[in-house]
Simulated assay, not measured.
Amino acid sequence: MPNPDLHGPGATPGSVWDLKPWWCQPWSILLTGLAIVAGSWLVLHLWWITTGVSLAIGAWWLLFLVLMPAAWRQEQDGGG
């Protein structure tokens, strides 16, 4: 059976990730973050900058991989 059209009337996606393009999926968010942290270290070799970059990436991951999906799920469940 083919996948239903997620944008059609009455269609409800199973998760927030069904609504996002390929470049905004959990795997791409994780890989991009890891590449940025690794690139920071490989280019600069300064632990204090890489630590700051890591904290910023961690906050980005928390927002987009934990808080945003939880808020979407709560909204879909009828919570407010």
Rank of each mutant, 00 (worst) to 15 (best):
L6I: 13
P2Y: 04
D18P: 02
D77V: 05
Q74F: 05
N3Y: 05
G52D: 03
V43T: 07
A35C: 07
E75C: 05
G14H: 04
V43G: 02
P26S: 14
P26E: 14
L46Y: 09
P13I: 01
T51Q: 04
D18N: 07
V66P: 02
P13V: 04
D18S: 04
P26H: 14
T51L: 15
P2L: 08
G52A: 05
L19W: 01
T50C: 01
I29M: 11
W48L: 12
A59V: 13
P2G: 03
G78C: 02
L34Y: 11
G39Y: 03
P13D: 00
H45E: 10
P21E: 10
P69E: 10
D5E: 12
F64M: 01
I57Q: 05
W23G: 08
M1T: 05
W48V: 07
T50P: 00
W41H: 05
V66C: 14
S40C: 14
C24P: 00
G14F: 01
V43D: 03
T12D: 01
W22G: 11
W60F: 15
I36K: 02
P21W: 11
I36F: 04
S40W: 03
A59Y: 15
P2S: 09
F64W: 08
I29P: 00
V37W: 00
A11G: 10
W60T: 11
P13C: 12
S15F: 09
D18Q: 15
L42M: 05
G10A: 08
W47N: 06
T51P: 00
I49G: 03
V43Q: 03
A35G: 11
W47L: 11
D77K: 14
V66L: 15
G33S: 04
G10F: 07
L62Y: 14
H45V: 02
S40Y: 00
P13Q: 00
W60S: 12
W27D: 07
L42V: 04
L6P: 06
G33K: 01
S28I: 03
P21Q: 11
G52T: 00
S40A: 12
P2V: 10
A35T: 07
P13H: 01
W27H: 07
I57V: 15
